[in-house]
Computed example of a mutant assay.
Amino acid sequence: MTQERFPDFFILGAPKCGTTSLFSWLQAHPDTYLPVKEPGFFSPDILELSRHPGAIRTLKQYLDRLCPPDAAGKMTGESTPKYLYSEAALRALSPHAGRIKLIVMLRNPVDLAIAMHAQNLRQGREREPNFERAWSRGPAALGDRLTDYRFWGQPSVHLARWRNAFPAEDIHVQLLEENMKNDPAAAHEEVLSFLGLAPHRMDSYAPQNIRKSYRSARLKSASSRARRSVYRALEVVGITPQGTGILRMLEALNSKPIAQTNSAASVRKELAKTFAEDVSNLARLLGRETLPWPDFKLHRAHRAETEEA
């Protein structure tokens, strides 16, 4: 564990890659202190949170929340996947190289782009319900990283920067399809070993943060506005917002799992073509010939057929 007051580890990576599940398993370990999953404090260049109700606004607030005196002797950390893509986060964390550890979670960028679109729809950031049209449009607004699906699907450049700044032995990479989905218990044990924590098997490895949609978009919008209003009112009188149970209950009643659907083959081919070079670079960066993502095997086969013709 680090000698100064600072988190011992960070979970980075692409969103929707199993980071919520992994963090919840680490929270259950008796030798960790992990009160906040995704503070997003170090990545204002991706998403500025300082004006959001209940946000952590200063480094002192951040350290008081994540690394208080009560956490002495326990491993501390957080999980903000967006840090992988954030130049601001890299600048903030790189001075701690050699003292902190990084867990990087990745997945098939084709599936990632589609999942990011679904998440943005659910959270009200995306207004175009059709992924193909949203993809063709580009970012919903100038400089909007969250709706720039090409940006999220090309992690190799970002991972290369982190690997240049941190010792190789302090970065552990997992692929969603190969680790978390295939054998979550083994993936969990790998991370515990990497962090130097004792083995700790969970009773259940059921996935967390399953994709949801809402039965009523109006109710979702109204509950979000109500939550923000309550949080602001509490902050004005000096009370730190801790969540509103009634609003959480309404949101739970209004939500439903998203049925898994297959995007059109033509759309997946277009995405695979866009991301192919980055996937090749990522494979080389990880010292592998291929990655377990069928879209790119199909893309290579199609390209070979075209060249032969």
Rank of each mutant, 00 (worst) to 15 (best):
E177Q: 09
I171C: 11
P167L: 13
N120P: 04
A187I: 05
F166S: 10
R232M: 12
R137D: 06
G243Q: 04
N182K: 15
L234G: 00
N262D: 15
L175Y: 04
R201Y: 08
L159Q: 08
A141C: 04
A217K: 04
A217I: 13
H188F: 15
D170S: 14
N130Y: 00
N130L: 13
R248E: 09
A206F: 07
L142C: 08
W152G: 05
A134F: 05
R163E: 13
E126D: 09
N179L: 11
T261V: 13
A187N: 02
P199E: 07
A118N: 10
Q174W: 12
H117P: 08
R201S: 14
V230Q: 02
R227T: 07
S156K: 00
K220E: 15
G238M: 13
A259M: 10
I258D: 08
S136Q: 10
R122P: 01
A226K: 02
V237L: 14
E189A: 15
R163N: 10
A259P: 01
G138E: 02
M249K: 04
E235M: 06
L253D: 00
H188W: 13
T147R: 02
D144N: 06
P207S: 07
A168K: 09
D203T: 06
W162N: 05
T147F: 06
M180F: 14
P199F: 14
I246Q: 03
S213H: 05
I210Q: 12
A168Q: 10
A187M: 08
G153N: 11
R122V: 05
N182A: 15
Y231K: 01
V230G: 01
H172A: 12
E251C: 00
D203M: 11
R215S: 05
S216E: 06
N179M: 13
V230L: 15
Y214T: 03
M249G: 00
V173E: 12
H158T: 01
L176F: 15
S216F: 11
A168W: 04
R248A: 12
L219T: 03
V191R: 09
H158R: 08
W162C: 06
L250I: 14
E177P: 06
R218Y: 09
N130V: 14
A168N: 04
R232T: 04
F131H: 07
E126V: 08
G124I: 02
I210W: 01
G124V: 02
A198E: 11
V236S: 03
D144F: 03
S156Q: 10
N262H: 15
A185L: 13
D183K: 07
A222F: 13
H200Q: 12
S255N: 01
V236L: 14
N182E: 15
R225P: 00
G143I: 09
E126H: 04
E132P: 01
A217D: 13
L121K: 00
D203G: 15
A118R: 11
S213D: 09
I258S: 07
F194S: 00
L250A: 11
P155V: 12
H200D: 11
H172Q: 11
A115M: 08
